[in-house]
Simulated scan of single mutants.
Amino acid sequence: MTHIKNNLVQVKHQISQACQLANRSIDEVLLLAVSKTKPSAMVEQAYHAGQRFFGESYIQEAIEKIEQLSHLTDIQWHFIGPIQSNKTRHIAELFSWVHSVDRAKIITRLNEQRSEQDTPLNVCLQVNISGESSKSGIKVNELAELAQLTDTSSHLTLRGIMAIPEKNASIASYQKMQQLFQQLQQQYPSVDTLSMGMSSDLTVAIAHGATIVRIGTAIFGQRETIANN
């Protein structure tokens, strides 16, 4: 457990330094520990070190962890991976947040499958800001339509946008995401989230308005390779 606890301390220190450089409060940036491919025991170690927010990308793996860690009632689970339409029910039923919505069909299914007994599912729309064919996400010109659809879905709450800029992306990509985020904020009172920045680029992401940084490697070590599910 010691190395995970120490890694969390180090990452939080990096976030604090990045916030200072950007003249922002550290309270404006939430650390999402990306626990995909890591066993539930490591998630629990991070939990006991004070971490409460965890990101998963693979449904079957996430289901197992959520069940195994159900005794930790204040964990908040975020789905951050590509979404297959036949897996939306699990996301709607098990997660508090989803960061990777990129199609109208997914929005409709999540809204229909979220129980009325639950609080609305918090949604970020994924923008393919670098235009990479290998990555999920909408084009910039598709954002307005999907934002409106999400906002008018009774069991969803539009919280913002998410991006995974390409490796060594230019500052322009981060600037564009910040601009899109600010525009959405002006249109929708519920929008307060720019999910952007990982272990390798958290400083530049925070400098450009990120409110959630998704950190895996720097906390848990190199991720394992598993079959997509």
Rank of each mutant, 00 (worst) to 15 (best):
K135D: 10
I15G: 04
A172N: 14
A163Q: 00
L31F: 09
K139H: 15
I226M: 13
A144F: 03
N229C: 13
R89H: 08
V191P: 10
T88S: 14
N228F: 06
E28W: 00
T225W: 04
D118S: 14
V191T: 14
G221P: 06
G55C: 06
M1T: 13
R114H: 01
V29W: 03
R223M: 10
G131L: 11
Q17G: 04
K87P: 05
R24V: 12
K12R: 14
V101D: 02
L8G: 02
H13N: 09
A62I: 07
S136Y: 12
S153N: 09
K36V: 11
I219N: 06
P189L: 05
L32H: 00
S70N: 13
G50H: 09
Q126E: 15
K5Y: 00
L180W: 05
G55I: 08
N23V: 07
M1V: 13
Q182L: 10
V101A: 03
Q117L: 12
A147N: 05
A218M: 07
M42C: 04
F54Y: 02
L69D: 06
G221I: 07
Q179Y: 10
I161C: 07
F53C: 08
C19K: 02
T73H: 12
Q51N: 08
L72M: 10
F79L: 05
V98M: 03
A92H: 00
V9I: 13
W97M: 04
D102C: 11
N168V: 01
G221C: 07
I206C: 06
L149K: 12
N168A: 11
A163Y: 00
E224L: 13
L146H: 12
V9K: 13
I75V: 06
S35G: 09
K105T: 11
Q45F: 03
N128F: 02
L202I: 11
I75G: 00
E116A: 15
A163K: 01
V43K: 00
L8D: 04
A92G: 03
T152P: 00
F181S: 12
A104K: 09
I107K: 05
S57I: 10
E112Y: 09
N6Q: 11
P82Y: 08
P82R: 07
D201H: 08
R89S: 11
M42N: 07
S130D: 09
S154T: 12
